[in-house]
């Protein structure tokens, strides 16, 4: 029972982190048609900046400044890098962001080295928030959950209630009309891109010290974020939320329960002790399959329902 509760809790946490990345990515995609391959790289930059800033002036200023810097870098990338490529079409834009992800990883290695940096949980938070049936739950994880839920609510209020949010919503579906109403669509693109990157930066700040801050963190998380936005439906924040939570919880459950898949095979009369290739199948467990599952869902989703859970148009 406690395993179930804790893994759901951890799954929620991981899911909310994924959502923070996915929400920015899906906004950018539906606004500009650009799949930002470097999105997780901005997540990584957030973590590294937070590590650097927290070394100087502490965790809390880092939580504010690191995402701001990431956001400004993102806006600059859109303005000076992506916009000139726009005329070559979406594939060129995707190639540009792919190159950017590659370059950011190299730059991070150049500055901070190839090994993980010691970006730690702040001292004050490194205590057990509560203990339940003998299992401690750290205060920092509770803070992560609270912060991500707060950001999620703020994002929804921003999109649904503010004037800027309404313009963004309008530009999602009718960019030409928004432009002819006198809004500077270029500027909207730039700041949405920067805003999405800043959200990824926040995720990096609060997630980097739990997931580990290292140069490969972008490439391990990036593809999963793509899975989230495709399953949720491109352009749909609700879809991204549900898909992110689903993947987060599924990942945690399959690891903590670690069931063997042998009983299923036994139904087909497979022997426990087999030689050769079949041995791989007999030894399969859900924990082993956990890294494959998101992509399996991605492929199934694209085949069965290309628009995703809540998407309004086919990808």
């Amino acid at each position: 029972m406690e395993v179930l509760v804790f893994s759901i809790f951890n799954g929620l946490l991981y899911g909310m982190l994924l959502f923070m990345l996915a929400s920015g990515l899906t906004l950018i995609f539906s606004l500009m048609g650009v799949l930002n391959f470097a999105h997780a790289s901005f997540f990584m930059l957030g973590a590294y900046f937070a590590y650097q800033i927290s070394g100087f002036i502490g965790f809390w200023p880092g939580l504010v400044f690191a995402p701001l810097i990431v956001g400004v870098i993102g806006a600059a990338v859109e303005r000076y890098g992506l916009r000139p490529v726009h005329k070559f079409g979406h594939v060129a834009e995707l190639l540009f962001t792919f190159g950017l992800a590659f370059v950011i990883e190299e730059v991070v290695q150049m500055i901070w080295g190839k090994v993980p940096v010691p970006y730690d949980i702040p001292e004050t938070m490194n205590v057990a928030a509560f203990t339940w049936r003998g299992l401690d739950y750290s205060a920092y994880r509770l803070f992560m959950l609270g912060a991500s839920v707060a950001i999620f609510l703020a994002l929804f209020v921003f999109i649904a209630k503010t004037r800027t949010g309404l313009i963004i919503q309008a530009a999602l579906t009718h960019p030409n009309i928004v432009s002819s109403l006198g809004h500077d669509v270029g500027k909207i693109f730039m700041w949405t891109f920067g805003f999405g990157c800043a959200l990824a930066g926040v995720a990096g700040v609060i997630g980097g010290n739990v997931l580990g801050t290292e140069p490969s963190m972008a490439i391990t998380l990036g593809p999963i974020v793509f899975v989230v936005i495709v399953i949720g439906g491109l352009g749909s924040l609700w879809g991204a939320l549900i898909a992110a939570l689903f993947i987060g919880i599924m990942d945690n459950l399959s690891i903590s329960y670690d069931l063997s898949l042998y009983p299923v095979l036994a139904l087909f009369g497979v022997e426990r002790e087999v030689e050769g290739i079949m041995q791989d199948l007999v030894n399969l467990t859900t924990a082993g399959l956990a890294p494959v599952l998101p992509y399996l869902f991605l492929v199934l989703m694209l085949i069965l329902r290309p628009r995703g859970l809540f998407g309004t148009r086919d990808v």
């Binding site: 048609g33 799949l35 979406h90 594939v91 995707l94 793509f226 495709v230 991605l298 694209l302 290309p306 086919d314 990808v315």
Partner: peptide, 8 residues
């Protein structure tokens, strides 16, 4: 599909 979907 080609383009972004295919890439994903």
């Amino acid at each position: 599909r080609a383009g972004t979907v295919f890439a994903m």
